[in-house]
Design a protein around this nucleic acid. Sequence first.
DNA 1: CTAACCATGACGGACTCT
DNA 2: AGAGTCCGTCATGGTTAG
Length: 331
Amino acid sequence: MVGFSLPNSMVQPVKRSLPEQAIGPPFFYYENVAQTPKRTWDTIKGELYGVEPEFLDSKYICATARKRGYIHNLPIENRSSLCLEPPKTIFEAFPHYRKWWPSWDSRKQLNCLTTCVPSSRLTELIEFVLSAAENPPSLRVQNYVMALCRQYNLVWVGKNRVAHLEPHEMEYLLGFPRNHTRGVTRTQRYKSLGNSFQVDTVTYHLSVLRDMFPDGINVLSLFTGIGGGEVALHRLGIHMRIVVSVEISKVNKRILRSWWNQTQTGELIQIPDVRTLTDDKIRSFIESIGGFDLVIGGSPCNNLAGKNRFHRDGLEGEHSSLFYQYPRILN
DNA sequence: CTAACCATGACGGACTCT
DNA sequence: AGAGTCCGTCATGGTTAG
């Protein structure tokens, strides 16, 4: 899962030719979870002009895994390595965790960051088991503890003590500025961050745009969330003249607005629901601003994701079916 | 008082790759 | 055939806003 190319890598970059229909303008960039049935990705691909998905695990870019598929019509030659290299291992990201990290925990990177937080009962259980065990613990105990650490993405914060990541640590690993989501409830921060882009990964893909738009770009941002795409563009130094952002969550809208007001000089127009962005409205936007240069977004994965035990209904699920709004709007 | 909000804990299985 | 992974949901009880 190495995508079409990797930064600073000996991996031979892939060459591809886009289907005629997929060639821009505008450029488009679509994202979703990679680990959903192949037939789902076949459907997505079919709706997006048959463009082959780029499957990339962010563990090749940063310190945490994030297996995602990206369908886009961006050039893939001459992607530039990031000016600011993100940490690629747990210890590079959090040197202070060395202190309590047992030698038998061989993890160098973290698993996928999600929205959920494990119960404190679990960390208590691990501490209890390890306190009662020999030092070092038997293989059996090690395997037991490691399975839980991997499953819940736990880190070592004290003697025999593990803990879940703090929201600001997730912000850091995902490539957001510190305190990007601060000011909303803790639970909400976990939710918003768990649902977001890995910014460095998106930055790498979008880096080909940097020299193409010296006067800035107009962006149509669908399912914006906390603005991973916008942060990536900003980091590339690409001026956003106008961003029309579609995002239903009040909290996420507030987070984006506050970041925008602090860092941007362009105009941000926020719309709550993709379904209210009718064809007529799109036409009038295009007329008034002179067209969009980039359409970017990842549609809801709720009904595709492996974590969902209740309604893993695929693309036709209640939330994930909003995907179909993406090709409609793009067309 | 009521409704909305918030934190917490409990809860398997489908899927891919080797 | 086996191992490892996963942008999650729901009910409950407490808290806060109006």
